[in-house]
Design a binder for these strands. Structure first.
Lengths: 224, 224
DNA sequence: ACCTTATCGTTGGTTATCCAACCGATTTGT
DNA sequence: ACAAATCGGTTGGATAACCAACGATAAGGT
């Protein structure tokens, strides 16, 4: 809790809002911090939600349970990440996941209506906050779009080349590093790790790519 | 062009803003309509973009070209749908797709900065516009999340049951209709249509689901 | 009634993925 | 320096998906 402000400044939601803005802003947002013990549930699937959660400390799991009650982890949320922002901003009202604290955790709750309603004191940070919120949603949109584009390919080779092609385009060169190890990349593309390794070896043998660890190089233009 | 306002009112971006608001709003947004002939390019992949496009008439294709120049269609955009909103709002600046008019088309361009900047005349519709923009992005977020959840399953059976399970939950009952025919569902889940049909038959034979056309019924709790 | 088209289910051969298991290399901790 | 753990590549058998082709059914138009 002592580095509360440093967490906030690390959040894209509060970017461009200096520490001097936090005080007034949090006041007019009616933001409140709540604490949770290990394995305590922050929010149940199906609950009505109207507040955005921002992880301040600890570690949260978003879980989805099927009809049998089998729980599967959708994501892990760590400071300064947010959760429930899409449901709240989209006006769905019902949480599609449960949120559970996997460690003693603190969460800052922000009322969405207070964000989008111009505050009486017309504080200048408010407009910036809204722009930030839009930016967060939009960038998540873009990330998901490109991930879906990769996942939509029918073969591991297709998924991989789609991913590497985009990574190369983003880094602006044939050689680049990726932020994943093998297992993580396999999870990201939703394929089996060993099968991914095998496919990578094939691609190298065919002279299409080269790599070492998470450093990759595209040797030919790739036809997907 | 004669039903220009009816297109706008159908757009979620302008929902809650009556026809009386369009005039002043479009003025303070500096919105401009441009026309394009068949097969004319609205925007090239990689172009700098700072304006959101709203299809007013015609039909647009978002296309992605790989390194060979092979074009593939990402989406079709028809009135009153929008495009480029994520890139612009996310501040990426570069279009990840080309936009081509497949018919004579009209596009309303809206400057993003004019949306998020409070207008001098402080028109009341502005706040609503911003809330709408956030809502559009957030709902798209949610749709993509659930689609990814289905696509991430490794088998056709898994994808299908994941999809049907959510559809059932949303409709609040075991029996429901889906908005896709077989081919469209296969495309949505990114699998082969005939394989999807075959898997559906199996599930029916096993007494897990029943269906006719696009009407479905879940007969047992489903373990995915 | 007839033809055309679209949709859906089925089948069989081919191919790719999954999965478990194993090994080697590298890293980490003590 | 040694043991334990992590990570990446390889292999082979079981399984599932792809793909093309065909037939059945239903819908729409003339």
């Amino acid at each position: 809790m002592k580095n509360f402000f440093s967490i906030l400044s690390a959040s894209p939601l509060f970017s461009g809002i200096g520490a001097e803005g936090f005080g007034s802003l949090l006041g007019c947002l009616g933001a409140a911090v709540k604490s949770y013990g290990k394995d305590e549930t922050v929010c149940f699937e199906g609950d009505a939600v109207s507040e955005i959660g921002l992880a301040v400390s600890g570690r949260l799991h978003l879980m989805k349970s099927d009809v049998w009650g089998n729980n599967s982890i959708v994501t892990e949320v760590t400071p300064p990440e947010m959760f429930a922002e899409a449901v709240v901003c989209g006006g769905l009202g019902r949480a599609p996941v449960s949120v559970v604290a996997k460690e003693p955790s603190e969460v800052l709750f922000i009322d969405y209506r207070k964000i989008v309603t111009v505050c009486p004191s017309a504080c200048g940070f408010h407009a910036r906050l809204i722009r930030n919120m839009i930016g967060v949603l939009a960038r998540k949109n873009i990330m998901m779009s490109s991930k879906m584009e990769h996942m939509a390919k029918r073969t591991i080779r297709g998924k991989l080349l789609s991913y590497l092609g985009e990574a190369s385009r983003q880094k602006g060169g044939r050689a680049f590093e990726i932020p994943y190890n093998r297992q993580e990349l396999a999870d990201y593309l939703s394929v089996d790790r060993s099968a991914l390794s095998a496919e990578m070896s094939k691609l190298r043998a065919e002279g299409i790519i080269d790599y070492r660890k998470n450093h990759f190089e595209l040797l030919r233009e790739l036809a997907q």
